[in-house]
């Protein structure tokens, strides 16, 4: 069997060992477990949140997954859209859940509030996951998910690979240095000039890579908005462009800002790097792939004279 065959939506260079091994494991284990569950059945799960969808795809046996959200199969928002196609999907409503009588329902803390309350009143076990804002939380959340769905061993292996992968990318941007020292002052720039500081998950990844948050000096904390002129005054070496997930790339004035000619001015030599948004919009071990992709851009960026 071709490893990672159904990961077709993920670009080749990103199909790292991490995801491949997790998914190969997934198919092998599921073949075995199909036989052995008779007495000690693993919990069957419905996920109402894209981030828990992704964790399930990485950790659960296919038989465990009752349904995922529709977002999980949309490549604009999901890095595992290909793998999600074979599962039923829901739109985050109680009616999508109750008829299937799952053992556990997974939800995000900030979404589908009414649905969660309704399900709890019906006696369904709902487990909520808060948004992950740091790399440490990624490991914690993954282990917690493994415990909830009875896949502790797989979660531990995945977290170990996650850490191993992160070790390879730690501080790479600071190592590649040009004539005038490392060109590693970065600003994370999203639609409408929104920027994430070091306290966001994305900012956490940048710090891990040895990038310096150039907007912090300006008082931009975990989340903020930076004007075009302020951005030029900061004059970062790197613009990490992060267009949100989903339909965010459709025309809007917020998106137009990212294409303003001033940001493309050659004299300023600001290098633009497209952030792997779908990989770090959720705190799953896939974040290590986002780090790997950004790390791969480091040598080229360092060689460009300012």
């Amino acid at each position: 069997m071709r490893p990672c065959g159904f990961l077709s939506s993920v670009p080749q260079r990103l199909r790292s060992r991490l995801v491949c091994s997790a998914l190969t494991m997934l198919t092998m284990v599921s073949a075995a477990s199909a036989v052995s569950i008779a007495g000690d059945r693993l919990p069957r799960v419905v996920s109402l949140n894209l981030c828990t969808d992704l964790q399930l795809l990485l950790l659960a046996d296919p038989e465990q997954i009752v349904s995922l959200t529709w977002l999980a199969r949309d490549p604009r928002s999901s890095p595992l859209a290909g793998a999600a196609q074979r599962f039923a999907f829901n739109r985050g409503q109680a009616e999508d859940v109750l008829p299937f009588a799952p053992d556990v329902v997974l939800a995000g803390t900030y979404s589908t509030r009414f649905t969660v309350d309704l399900l709890r009143r019906q006696g369904v076990r709902v487990v909520e996951f808060a948004p992950v804002t740091s790399l440490d939380d990624v490991a914690q959340t993954t282990l917690r998910m493994g415990a909830i769905i009875g896949q502790e061993a797989r979660a531990q292996r995945l977290v170990a690979e996650f850490h191993e992968s992160l070790n390879q990318t730690a501080g790479v941007w600071a190592k590649h240095s040009g004539d005038r020292g490392p060109r590693n002052r970065a600003v994370l720039l999203g639609a409408g000039g929104f920027t994430g500081g070091a306290d966001s998950l994305a900012g956490n990844v940048l710090t891990h890579l040895g990038l310096v948050d150039a907007a912090r000096r300006y008082g931009a904390k975990s989340w903020g908005r930076v004007g075009l002129e302020e951005l030029l005054r900061l004059h970062p070496d790197i613009l990490v462009i992060t267009t949100g997930s989903d339909a965010s790339r459709e025309p809007s004035m917020a998106i137009e800002i990212l294409n303003h000619p001033a940001l493309h001015d050659r004299a300023l030599g600001m290098r633009r790097i497209l952030a792997p948004t779908t990989y770090w919009s959720c705190g799953t071990p896939l974040v290590a792939l986002a780090a790997a992709k950004l790390a791969a851009a480091a040598p080229a960026a360092a060689s460009i004279a300012p």
Binding site: S248, E250, S252, M253, A254
Partner: peptide, 12 residues
């Protein structure tokens, strides 16, 4: 409009 930002841009 398809963009999620569009509704916020009415002020412009």
């Amino acid at each position: 409009a398809p963009s999620p930002f569009a509704a916020l841009e009415i002020i412009f």
